[in-house]
Design a protein around this nucleic acid. Structure first.
Lengths: 217, 217
DNA sequence: CAAAATTAATCAAACGATTGATTGAAATTG
DNA sequence: CAATTTCAATCAATCGTTTGATTAATTTTG
């Protein structure tokens, strides 16, 4: 049936996403993925053409869900810059924690120099998030909500970088935080609110700071 | 001669570091490394035992230079917590920007789930840096220099995460910053002071904040 | 000192294993 | 039955590693 076929494809993509995330593109083998998914190896090529085709399919499936949520925030003119920022953080963290293994996958492959065609594609996707947040900062500066001499590029890097550091290097962040962040329960009930709380306060402190003594440079 | 042997070994390690950084451990092949280094393939195993031995040797060579600088800062009791923090940032940024391709290498392999024995070794190395900074925060809180209810684990993640994000995803950070960060000149003359300046100010704002309204959680 | 023995360094060639991919037959489907 | 889906078997290519031979340098010996 058509439905079964789609389900099977989806199941293969689920397994592939997990294995690619854990072992990287080069470290994952098609045999491993097929056996883990319980399908014949030839099915991968039958469905997706090649290993790279499968890798791309993992991405394609996620893209749609990534691009829907984004535009709704920046366009809401009834919200203040502070509200927009808070909403953005809330939604971003909620979405990113769920897809944390996919996030690992994305940023690992982004740091590899080859495969430039794929890298360009991922760059476009990620820049949507980046520009959305950066726009809020620039707007907030213009309307006087935020300090006028903030470094909007850097603070954007801080938001994404802090998140990536915690998600992508679980060995280290688990030691730092005193808990195994791979535990679903801890991630959802403790880390998520803690991260939101911390990030909001960090941003508030940085964006509102009045007396900036640059004498310590 | 002995000197030539050491130079040759060092040359192989230079090439290996570059190729591992560009393609990852699995993506790099021993044939590629040996041919790029201009040595016979068997020499890699003759010198380093195995591919993983070569990979480890790349690390071992760096470790010493990484661990010497660190202890000197935290132990200097003549410095205030603020001075320690500033010195730490200065030194860390200076050192990290130079070794940026090595940093890419480290954090890519750290995000891979397998190879746990190697991962553990890298974790130990990185935790030295992490703990050094975290210690400064905790000390500063204790002696009243910093706000008492800061999240020292998170702010540490922010320092390393922001740096990693910029270095490890050059495609994205270059678009954000408006310049190609792979340009040596820009990296040294613009990004480095900009990063230091930003990070110090961010920390100052967060660590000093007085009125913390948690009503927005 | 010169000849012999030992060690270290280097090489081309080949090893078995695994990779991603393909085949053609068998099974399932509508 | 015709078309689609699945499978075991196999493909050439590449992987990391090992081998045995060769060269160069060092040490030991007579």
């Amino acid at each position: 049936m058509d439905k079964d076929k789609i389900d099977k494809k989806d199941h293969i993509l689920d397994v592939a996403e997990k294995i690619f995330s854990d072992l990287g593109f080069d470290g994952a083998s098609t045999r491993m993925i097929s056996s883990e998914a319980g399908v014949n190896m030839a099915m991968l090529n039958y469905y997706f053409g090649s290993k790279e085709g499968l890798f791309l399919a993992v991405f394609e499936r996620k893209i749609s869900s990534f691009q829907t949520l984004l535009q709704n925030i920046g366009n809401d003119d009834s919200k203040s810059s502070w509200d927009k920022l808070d909403t953005c953080i809330e939604n971003y963290v909620d979405r990113i924690i769920v897809n944390n293994c996919f996030q690992k996958l994305i940023h690992r492959e982004m740091s590899i120099s080859k495969r430039t065609d794929l890298t360009d594609k991922i760059t476009d996707i990620l820049m949507v998030n980046v520009n959305e947040i950066k726009k809020i900062f620039d707007e907030g500066v213009k309307n006087g909500s935020f300090n006028h001499d903030i470094d909007s590029a850097m603070i954007t890097a801080t938001i994404f970088g802090t998140k990536n550091y915690i998600i992508n290097t679980p060995n280290i962040s688990s030691l730092m935080l005193g808990h195994d962040i791979r535990e679903e329960k801890y991630l959802e009930e403790d880390l998520k609110p803690r991260f939101k709380n911390y990030m909001k306060r960090l941003l508030r402190a940085y964006l509102l700071v009045e007396q900036h003594d640059n004498t310590t440079v």
